[in-house]
Simulated scan of single mutants.
Amino acid sequence: MAKEFNKDIFMRNVYHLLQGRDIKVGDLERSVGVSVGYLAKLKKNADLRPGIDLVIKIAEKLEVSIDTLVGVDMDRLTATEAYMQRFLQKLKRDTEGHKLRWGRETKAELSNLKGDINGNVDHPFFSFEEFVVDTGNDYPSHEEGFVFVSDAFGAETAIHGDCYNLRMKNGAKLFLADVEKVCHYLNDFDAYAKEIWMHTGAGKQFLCSNKNMRYANFVNNLFTAVAEYCRHPQLPADYRSVIDAFMKDDLADDISALMPDEPPF
């Protein structure tokens, strides 16, 4: 195990998840191939440490990421933090299972958005802003343009890499933004952020980012999964449904597909 591994957090998380899922310790032990009572011994013996294979098996059985199991103290999460972590985990699982239809927006596209004469732009997360950029000297630069106003850097935000969007229920849109501060020093890692926002009829709302250590692994892992998904060509949903039916040996026509949309009278 890596030096950063914290056995106390790992054990607290195991028992926390067992209680939340109403699973008995002995059942988990048998399912991962250790003797009954091993986890209790592991918890009490400071010198005893689990092997990586056991950690992986427990994470799989408890349906949680390894990063979460060993790095996030779940007992100390607020209700909102736990809720958001479950949301991010499901987004990642469903992305990897090709259940979602993500769209990709390149840095070039988002950095060159054009608006109308009234300062409106056809993107729910961008707006026309006037702002001051710190140039590192006595004369800051006054700028204006269509920008994404990030939680981390405000209007002094530039697009760093590919961003992604997902249409959700009732037209809501989720936006994964890879951004950087407009003016920053070379190798200043604090000048970069990955943020997740949502837009609904009520407006736009910042949800979380990798700037918050409680969410960092979840946000970074989600970005990785979505980027991998978008690297490959995707079949339209209508074609996938036909192929999925065939794979299940379902070759019969659906009655609804044979019926006209409207009656002839």
Rank of each mutant, 00 (worst) to 15 (best):
G154W: 03
R86M: 13
G201K: 14
D244K: 08
D122R: 15
V72R: 14
K107P: 04
Y229L: 06
V147G: 01
I66V: 15
Y229M: 09
F153I: 15
R49K: 15
V70R: 11
K92F: 00
L186K: 15
K57Q: 13
D249W: 03
F153T: 14
E60G: 11
Q89H: 11
N187L: 07
E156K: 03
N137Y: 09
P140M: 03
F218M: 05
A191E: 02
T78D: 13
G161E: 15
V219T: 02
V72K: 13
V32R: 02
M1Q: 14
A158D: 12
Y229C: 05
V219F: 01
K114S: 09
L39E: 08
V70L: 15
I66R: 15
D116A: 06
N212Y: 00
K7D: 02
A158L: 06
F126K: 08
T224K: 07
R240F: 06
N212Q: 09
F148S: 09
L174N: 07
E130G: 10
R93H: 12
A82M: 12
D178A: 09
G51T: 07
V147I: 04
K99I: 04
N120L: 13
I52W: 02
T68M: 12
P140S: 05
G115Y: 12
F87G: 03
N217P: 00
F206R: 11
K211S: 07
I56E: 04
L176Q: 02
Y15M: 08
Y139Q: 14
V36G: 04
Y139D: 15
E262M: 10
V25F: 01
A155V: 03
V182C: 04
F246V: 13
A193P: 00
P264W: 14
D190K: 14
C230I: 01
S241C: 11
Y229T: 00
V242Q: 15
C163W: 09
K41C: 06
D261S: 10
T95R: 01
A202H: 07
T157M: 07
H184T: 07
T157A: 11
M198R: 14
S111D: 09
K61R: 06
Q234L: 11
I56H: 05
G37D: 11
L42F: 06
K41L: 11
V36Y: 02
D162W: 00
